[in-house]
Design a protein around this nucleic acid. Structure first.
Length: 271
DNA sequence: ATGCGGACCTGTTAGC
DNA sequence: TGCTAACAGGTCCGCA
Protein backbone atom coordinates (compact mmCIF):
# COMPACT_ATOMS: atom_id res chain seq x y z
CA UNK A 1 0.00 0.00 0.00
CA UNK A 2 2.14 2.70 1.21
CA UNK A 3 4.30 4.40 -1.27
CA UNK A 4 4.38 8.15 -0.89
CA UNK A 5 1.35 8.69 -3.15
CA UNK A 6 -0.77 6.45 -0.98
CA UNK A 7 0.42 8.11 2.18
CA UNK A 8 -0.42 11.49 0.70
CA UNK A 9 -3.78 10.18 -0.44
CA UNK A 10 -4.38 8.90 3.06
CA UNK A 11 -3.43 12.27 4.50
CA UNK A 12 -5.86 14.05 2.23
CA UNK A 13 -8.52 11.48 2.99
CA UNK A 14 -8.40 11.75 6.77
CA UNK A 15 -7.55 15.44 7.08
CA UNK A 16 -11.04 16.87 6.56
CA UNK A 17 -12.55 14.53 9.11
CA UNK A 18 -10.11 15.02 11.96
CA UNK A 19 -8.70 18.53 11.67
CA UNK A 20 -10.08 20.68 14.48
CA UNK A 21 -11.63 17.70 16.21
CA UNK A 22 -11.02 16.80 19.84
CA UNK A 23 -9.76 13.37 20.79
CA UNK A 24 -11.77 11.56 23.41
CA UNK A 25 -9.65 8.45 23.86
CA UNK A 26 -7.38 5.98 22.15
CA UNK A 27 -7.77 2.21 22.10
CA UNK A 28 -4.64 0.14 21.71
CA UNK A 29 -5.26 -3.55 21.03
CA UNK A 30 -1.76 -4.44 19.88
CA UNK A 31 1.27 -2.61 21.16
CA UNK A 32 3.86 -4.63 19.25
CA UNK A 33 4.32 -2.64 16.08
CA UNK A 34 7.73 -1.63 14.74
CA UNK A 35 8.23 0.13 18.03
CA UNK A 36 5.95 -0.36 21.02
CA UNK A 37 2.89 1.84 20.96
CA UNK A 38 2.96 3.99 24.13
CA UNK A 39 1.27 2.16 26.96
CA UNK A 40 -0.87 5.09 27.98
CA UNK A 41 -1.56 6.53 24.54
CA UNK A 42 -5.14 7.28 25.50
CA UNK A 43 -4.28 9.52 28.44
CA UNK A 44 -1.58 11.22 26.36
CA UNK A 45 -4.07 12.15 23.65
CA UNK A 46 -7.39 12.59 25.39
CA UNK A 47 -8.79 16.10 25.37
CA UNK A 48 -6.45 17.40 22.69
CA UNK A 49 -7.50 19.02 19.44
CA UNK A 50 -5.99 18.11 16.07
CA UNK A 51 -4.33 21.20 14.65
CA UNK A 52 -3.29 19.77 11.31
CA UNK A 53 -2.31 16.60 9.48
CA UNK A 54 1.12 16.74 7.90
CA UNK A 55 3.10 14.32 5.79
CA UNK A 56 6.90 14.10 5.88
CA UNK A 57 8.17 11.40 3.55
CA UNK A 58 6.00 8.43 4.36
CA UNK A 59 5.38 9.56 7.92
CA UNK A 60 2.05 11.06 8.84
CA UNK A 61 2.04 13.57 11.66
CA UNK A 62 -1.09 14.47 13.56
CA UNK A 63 -0.15 17.76 15.14
CA UNK A 64 -2.00 18.14 18.41
CA UNK A 65 -1.98 21.02 20.82
CA UNK A 66 0.66 19.47 23.07
CA UNK A 67 2.62 17.18 20.80
CA UNK A 68 2.47 15.00 17.71
CA UNK A 69 1.18 11.56 16.87
CA UNK A 70 3.57 10.00 14.37
CA UNK A 71 2.12 7.27 12.19
CA UNK A 72 3.93 5.11 9.66
CA UNK A 73 2.03 2.59 7.56
CA UNK A 74 4.96 0.25 7.05
CA UNK A 75 4.41 -2.28 4.28
CA UNK A 76 0.81 -3.21 4.89
CA UNK A 77 -0.78 -0.52 7.01
CA UNK A 78 -3.73 1.72 6.35
CA UNK A 79 -5.89 4.28 8.09
CA UNK A 80 -9.62 4.72 7.84
CA UNK A 81 -12.10 7.09 9.35
CA UNK A 82 -15.15 5.25 10.65
CA UNK A 83 -18.41 6.94 11.47
CA UNK A 84 -18.82 4.83 14.56
CA UNK A 85 -16.77 2.39 16.54
CA UNK A 86 -17.17 -0.91 14.72
CA UNK A 87 -16.13 -4.36 15.93
CA UNK A 88 -12.38 -4.59 15.56
CA UNK A 89 -10.94 -7.10 13.13
CA UNK A 90 -7.80 -9.09 13.68
CA UNK A 91 -5.31 -6.44 12.55
CA UNK A 92 -7.06 -3.32 13.78
CA UNK A 93 -4.37 -2.34 16.25
CA UNK A 94 -5.10 1.24 17.25
CA UNK A 95 -8.20 3.46 17.30
CA UNK A 96 -8.21 7.17 17.95
CA UNK A 97 -11.72 8.04 19.05
CA UNK A 98 -13.04 11.56 18.60
CA UNK A 99 -15.78 13.41 20.35
CA UNK A 100 -18.99 12.96 18.38
CA UNK A 101 -17.97 9.37 17.69
CA UNK A 102 -15.74 9.28 14.61
CA UNK A 103 -12.87 6.85 14.83
CA UNK A 104 -9.48 6.93 13.12
CA UNK A 105 -8.50 3.27 12.85
CA UNK A 106 -5.00 1.98 12.16
CA UNK A 107 -4.82 -1.47 10.60
CA UNK A 108 -1.59 -3.28 9.74
CA UNK A 109 -1.31 -7.05 9.23
CA UNK A 110 2.48 -7.16 9.04
CA UNK A 111 2.99 -4.72 11.90
CA UNK A 112 5.92 -2.95 10.27
CA UNK A 113 4.09 0.29 10.88
CA UNK A 114 4.29 2.58 13.87
CA UNK A 115 2.20 4.79 16.12
CA UNK A 116 4.30 6.99 18.38
CA UNK A 117 3.82 10.04 20.56
CA UNK A 118 6.36 12.83 20.08
CA UNK A 119 6.76 15.67 22.52
CA UNK A 120 8.10 18.98 21.35
CA UNK A 121 9.22 19.72 17.81
CA UNK A 122 8.61 16.52 15.85
CA UNK A 123 11.20 17.46 13.25
CA UNK A 124 13.86 17.21 15.92
CA UNK A 125 12.93 13.62 16.55
CA UNK A 126 15.65 11.18 15.44
CA UNK A 127 13.30 9.50 12.96
CA UNK A 128 12.70 12.76 11.11
CA UNK A 129 15.87 14.70 11.78
CA UNK A 130 18.06 13.31 9.02
CA UNK A 131 15.49 12.88 6.29
CA UNK A 132 16.32 14.22 2.86
CA UNK A 133 14.17 16.70 0.94
CA UNK A 134 10.65 16.03 -0.28
CA UNK A 135 10.77 14.73 -3.84
CA UNK A 136 8.01 17.10 -4.96
CA UNK A 137 9.64 20.16 -3.44
CA UNK A 138 11.95 22.60 -5.22
CA UNK A 139 14.94 21.62 -3.15
CA UNK A 140 14.96 18.24 -4.84
CA UNK A 141 16.27 18.72 -8.37
CA UNK A 142 18.87 17.44 -10.80
CA UNK A 143 21.59 19.61 -9.39
CA UNK A 144 20.94 18.33 -5.89
CA UNK A 145 20.98 14.70 -7.06
CA UNK A 146 24.18 15.26 -8.98
CA UNK A 147 25.98 16.86 -6.07
CA UNK A 148 24.79 14.35 -3.52
CA UNK A 149 25.74 11.39 -5.67
CA UNK A 150 29.36 12.33 -6.36
CA UNK A 151 31.69 9.69 -5.01
CA UNK A 152 28.87 7.31 -4.17
CA UNK A 153 29.33 3.75 -5.31
CA UNK A 154 25.91 2.39 -4.43
CA UNK A 155 23.50 1.48 -7.18
CA UNK A 156 21.47 4.47 -8.25
CA UNK A 157 18.29 2.60 -7.35
CA UNK A 158 19.47 2.13 -3.76
CA UNK A 159 20.59 5.73 -3.75
CA UNK A 160 17.21 7.21 -4.65
CA UNK A 161 15.50 4.88 -2.19
CA UNK A 162 17.71 6.16 0.64
CA UNK A 163 15.61 8.44 2.82
CA UNK A 164 18.64 10.51 3.73
CA UNK A 165 18.99 11.42 0.05
CA UNK A 166 15.32 11.95 -0.79
CA UNK A 167 12.24 10.73 1.04
CA UNK A 168 9.32 8.79 -0.29
CA UNK A 169 10.76 6.95 -3.28
CA UNK A 170 9.76 3.33 -2.74
CA UNK A 171 10.50 0.23 -4.74
CA UNK A 172 7.73 0.61 -7.29
CA UNK A 173 8.44 4.19 -8.22
CA UNK A 174 12.20 3.76 -8.11
CA UNK A 175 11.80 1.14 -10.83
CA UNK A 176 9.40 3.29 -12.80
CA UNK A 177 11.44 6.49 -12.59
CA UNK A 178 14.65 4.75 -13.64
CA UNK A 179 12.87 3.24 -16.61
CA UNK A 180 11.48 6.59 -17.68
CA UNK A 181 14.89 8.19 -17.25
CA UNK A 182 16.60 5.43 -19.22
CA UNK A 183 19.04 4.56 -16.45
CA UNK A 184 19.99 1.06 -15.39
CA UNK A 185 19.12 0.49 -11.71
CA UNK A 186 22.47 -1.09 -10.83
CA UNK A 187 24.48 1.79 -12.23
CA UNK A 188 26.73 3.40 -9.63
CA UNK A 189 25.12 6.62 -8.42
CA UNK A 190 28.38 8.51 -8.67
CA UNK A 191 28.71 7.68 -12.35
CA UNK A 192 25.57 9.46 -13.49
CA UNK A 193 26.01 12.52 -15.66
CA UNK A 194 24.41 15.78 -14.61
CA UNK A 195 21.94 15.40 -17.48
CA UNK A 196 20.96 11.98 -16.20
CA UNK A 197 20.46 13.39 -12.71
CA UNK A 198 18.31 16.12 -14.18
CA UNK A 199 16.22 13.61 -16.06
CA UNK A 200 15.94 11.30 -13.08
CA UNK A 201 14.78 14.05 -10.74
CA UNK A 202 12.13 15.08 -13.27
CA UNK A 203 10.87 11.53 -13.71
CA UNK A 204 10.67 10.95 -9.96
CA UNK A 205 8.55 14.07 -9.63
CA UNK A 206 6.43 13.14 -12.61
CA UNK A 207 5.74 9.55 -11.60
CA UNK A 208 4.92 10.44 -8.01
CA UNK A 209 2.70 13.29 -9.14
CA UNK A 210 0.79 11.04 -11.50
CA UNK A 211 0.36 8.42 -8.82
CA UNK A 212 -1.01 10.95 -6.37
CA UNK A 213 -3.57 11.95 -8.98
CA UNK A 214 -4.49 8.31 -9.55
CA UNK A 215 -4.52 7.56 -5.82
CA UNK A 216 -6.95 10.37 -5.34
CA UNK A 217 -9.43 8.70 -7.64
CA UNK A 218 -8.98 5.14 -6.42
CA UNK A 219 -8.85 5.49 -2.65
CA UNK A 220 -11.56 8.09 -2.31
CA UNK A 221 -13.85 6.30 0.09
CA UNK A 222 -12.22 6.86 3.44
CA UNK A 223 -15.45 6.97 5.37
CA UNK A 224 -16.70 3.68 4.08
CA UNK A 225 -17.30 1.46 7.07
CA UNK A 226 -16.58 -1.55 4.93
CA UNK A 227 -13.26 0.01 4.05
CA UNK A 228 -13.57 -1.12 0.46
CA UNK A 229 -10.08 -1.47 -0.88
CA UNK A 230 -10.90 -0.93 -4.54
CA UNK A 231 -7.28 -1.57 -5.13
CA UNK A 232 -5.24 0.82 -6.97
CA UNK A 233 -3.97 -0.49 -10.25
CA UNK A 234 -1.86 2.19 -11.74
CA UNK A 235 -0.38 2.06 -15.15
CA UNK A 236 3.05 0.81 -14.33
CA UNK A 237 5.53 0.59 -17.16
CA UNK A 238 7.90 -2.00 -15.70
CA UNK A 239 7.13 -2.89 -12.10
CA UNK A 240 5.68 -6.39 -12.00
CA UNK A 241 6.21 -6.73 -15.75
CA UNK A 242 9.40 -8.79 -15.76
CA UNK A 243 9.60 -11.04 -18.83
CA UNK A 244 7.08 -8.99 -20.77
CA UNK A 245 7.99 -6.77 -23.70
CA UNK A 246 9.30 -3.30 -22.98
CA UNK A 247 6.53 -0.77 -23.65
CA UNK A 248 8.98 1.36 -25.58
CA UNK A 249 11.04 -1.05 -27.66
CA UNK A 250 9.57 -4.52 -27.18
CA UNK A 251 12.72 -6.03 -25.72
CA UNK A 252 12.07 -8.56 -22.96
CA UNK A 253 12.12 -6.78 -19.59
CA UNK A 254 14.66 -8.20 -17.16
CA UNK A 255 13.80 -8.90 -13.54
CA UNK A 256 16.60 -9.11 -10.99
CA UNK A 257 17.15 -8.49 -7.30
CA UNK A 258 18.94 -5.52 -5.88
CA UNK A 259 19.17 -5.12 -2.11
CA UNK A 260 16.74 -8.05 -1.91
CA UNK A 261 14.15 -6.01 -3.75
CA UNK A 262 12.52 -6.86 -7.03
CA UNK A 263 14.08 -4.80 -9.80
CA UNK A 264 12.85 -4.58 -13.37
CA UNK A 265 14.44 -2.82 -16.32
CA UNK A 266 14.75 -2.84 -20.08
CA UNK A 267 18.25 -3.92 -21.11
CA UNK A 268 17.97 -1.81 -24.25
CA UNK A 269 16.29 1.40 -23.05
CA UNK A 270 18.30 1.47 -19.82
CA UNK A 271 21.92 1.03 -20.90
C1' DA B 1 31.07 8.19 6.16
C1' DT B 2 29.60 4.28 3.41
C1' DG B 3 27.87 -0.14 2.36
C1' DC B 4 25.96 -4.39 3.49
C1' DG B 5 22.95 -7.87 5.59
C1' DG B 6 19.68 -8.96 9.08
C1' DA B 7 15.79 -7.85 11.59
C1' DC B 8 10.87 -7.00 12.42
C1' DC B 9 5.74 -9.69 10.95
C1' DT B 10 1.67 -11.95 8.39
C1' DG B 11 -0.67 -13.07 4.20
C1' DT B 12 -0.65 -14.60 -0.52
C1' DT B 13 1.12 -17.04 -4.27
C1' DA B 14 4.25 -20.19 -6.86
C1' DG B 15 6.06 -24.65 -7.04
C1' DC B 16 6.54 -29.50 -5.92
C1' DT C 1 -5.37 -30.93 -2.80
C1' DG C 2 -1.84 -29.97 0.58
C1' DC C 3 2.50 -28.56 2.22
C1' DT C 4 6.60 -25.51 1.88
C1' DA C 5 9.25 -21.79 0.27
C1' DA C 6 9.53 -17.46 -1.59
C1' DC C 7 7.93 -13.09 -1.88
C1' DA C 8 5.33 -8.59 -0.83
C1' DG C 9 4.49 -1.49 -1.42
C1' DG C 10 9.56 -0.10 4.41
C1' DT C 11 13.45 1.24 6.87
C1' DC C 12 16.06 0.97 11.06
C1' DC C 13 20.08 -0.88 13.18
C1' DG C 14 24.52 -2.93 13.98
C1' DC C 15 28.65 -4.26 12.09
C1' DA C 16 32.82 -4.28 8.89
Amino acid sequence: MPELPEVETTRRGIEPYITGRVIQAAVVRQRALRWPVPRHLSSLLAGQRVIEVVRRGKYLLLRLEGGTVLIHLGMSGHLRVLKKELPAQKHDHVDIVFEHGDVLRFTDPRRFGAVLWLKGDPFHHPLLLHLGPEPLGDQFCGKYLFERSRGRKVAVKSFIMDGKVVVGVGNIYANEALFLAGIRPARGAGRLSSDQCEQLALEIKWVLGQAIKAGGTTLRDFRSAEGQTGYFQQELMVYGQGGKPCPQCGTRLKETRLDQRSTVYCPRCQP
